[in-house]
Write a protein that binds this DNA or RNA. Sequence first.
DNA 1: GCGAATAATGTAAGCGCTTACATGCGATTC
DNA 2: GAATCGCATGTAAGCGCTTACATTATTCGC
Lengths: 341, 341
Amino acid sequence: MRTSRTTPTLDDVAKKAGVSTATVSRCLNTPDRVVKSTRTRVLKAVETLGYTPNFGARVMAAKRTFTIGAIIPTMENAIFARGLQAFQEELHRRGYTLLVSSTAYDPQIEEEQIRALVARGADGLLLIGYDRDPSLYRYLERQGVPALIAWAYAPQIAQSAIGFDNRGSMTLLAEEVLKQGHRRIGVISGVIKGNDRAADRLAGIEDALAAQGLPRDTLAVLETPYGFENGETAMRTLMEADIRPTVVMCGNDVLAAGALRGAKELGLRVPQDVSVTGFDDIEIARVVTPSLTTVHVPHREMGTKAATALIALVEGAAPDSPTQLQISLQLRESLGPVPKP
Amino acid sequence: MRTSRTTPTLDDVAKKAGVSTATVSRCLNTPDRVVKSTRTRVLKAVETLGYTPNFGARVMAAKRTFTIGAIIPTMENAIFARGLQAFQEELHRRGYTLLVSSTAYDPQIEEEQIRALVARGADGLLLIGYDRDPSLYRYLERQGVPALIAWAYAPQIAQSAIGFDNRGSMTLLAEEVLKQGHRRIGVISGVIKGNDRAADRLAGIEDALAAQGLPRDTLAVLETPYGFENGETAMRTLMEADIRPTVVMCGNDVLAAGALRGAKELGLRVPQDVSVTGFDDIEIARVVTPSLTTVHVPHREMGTKAATALIALVEGAAPDSPTQLQISLQLRESLGPVPKP
DNA sequence: GCGAATAATGTAAGCGCTTACATGCGATTC
DNA sequence: GAATCGCATGTAAGCGCTTACATTATTCGC
């Protein structure tokens, strides 16, 4: 239907401008290979006809789609939304289009989506985290589709990656917590299965404890899906235990904001009665009262750099070794010294 | 590159199965037109070869892409992120893929993106708001690409649309504000140019004033781009004026959260010294202290319904008249009675 | 100002798929 | 049993574009 008599084709433009289709194509793709006078004539024809190249045809002939696929757990998480926005902006600047899918944190769905995007001719893929079935990486390699892993950096990553050290960052934060004298630590973690970021963050806390020779049971860990309400509930559960933690470290800011709210409902003051920490440093961290001590992650920088790196890969650059971005601790009000008994 | 010797084509499958390409194609698209024995043979060949149809070729030959494009101002705004997530989920359920672009609230960029997505063969388009150059609608019609307008409902919309009445909602909220006795109203509005939602929300406030015969200068309006920091700054500006407003109504929750923060910095208590209201009812509204009085919008419902409606359009349904979703006022702590002088 | 080198343009062969139409074959009908 | 029909399958013509290669116009050196 679409391509009825009404939609102009390259041919129409060529006729109108009195040149061959090849010349029109060159005007559009490699303008410097066409002399100026012809070029303007052709462009005028393009203009008056309102011509837009047919994507499918172009893909087929050129074997390039200028499309990048991104597969993220969810857009509802501000940290992905923001990074993705930056990613898309950079892509657009470079003439690429973004194809987005989300997986709801389900590896099964992720695999489907990866295949779907490859079938649609994505030139490259942005993937979140590194922990997935190795056969998927092999599949991508066989298909010649480069993939870039974002939001994660870890020495063991074999693929091109850009991210930050979730584990080390959390260790840093945990050290700060310990320095404040806390020895009973509650943890509200994201769901760990299929989510290396959550796993690494928890491991980071454990590292800090181990380094100080503290027993494993210093920690009370609760896993819960992403979401404000879930943080709230988890906080309640933690604080109703026989031995209350004096600090609750959360896997991300949204959980932490929920925890803050949970504390409030229990009549607990933060940080006088219990301290709370987050991770990501999204807007919400500075908005809540008390403001949230958290780990600052450069989301937009990550998005932009991911775009650059992925395009390089797509355009044939050799894979770089993983890039690590710097995080920084944001010490705010929600973390205080351990309460006097 | 991709389609080097390594990627199997329809031809390869046909040879392997000992049939013609037409039969293979039919197996994949209209299985019931192929006898069972052949079908299984073909499907086995597909399997062993690991064949996936080439998207570009398919598009070109079939003129359908099962792709829906969405063009939103930005993904950083939680309200779009959430709605888009729901939209994508529903699309995926129905076998469509989502193509996303953002415009940074720039009509110029929006036009570009619309054309880009059409060129990529999007079967349908999701657009935010109704206020755009009529020639764009004509273009889409000419191209045979149906578009659905979301996040906006207004009687004057001629296209298919799904959304809520920004103007009427804001009137409702303003009436509540007036009921509390406020007569000096500050407004922190989003940028109005090219953003009908922002314009309608402001108009809604004006409607409420007009209905009560209050003078236009009851209002002190400040326009500012979307963003927490901007709300903060705007709040400061408003409160430093000679005549301070007793309430500040904000165009969205993020601006309102910023305003809350601005108030705090000025040492003003909310709502004792000044009241604040938002719009959208995103998570942040319940997280801030004091919690935000705002307008609740059913984001996810809108996303899901938008997907259903747009697919119907794409599949040839006659355009429905605009659908209006119900909003509700969320009265929370940030709005109180006008302070005693 | 002539030939060679170079730049601009044209010609035409696909890219991988769908589908209208043609073909062949067994079943049905009288 | 011949003519007819219906179904499964094959043949081949594009879809609109890019690009290698061929052809023609232009520029430059001497």
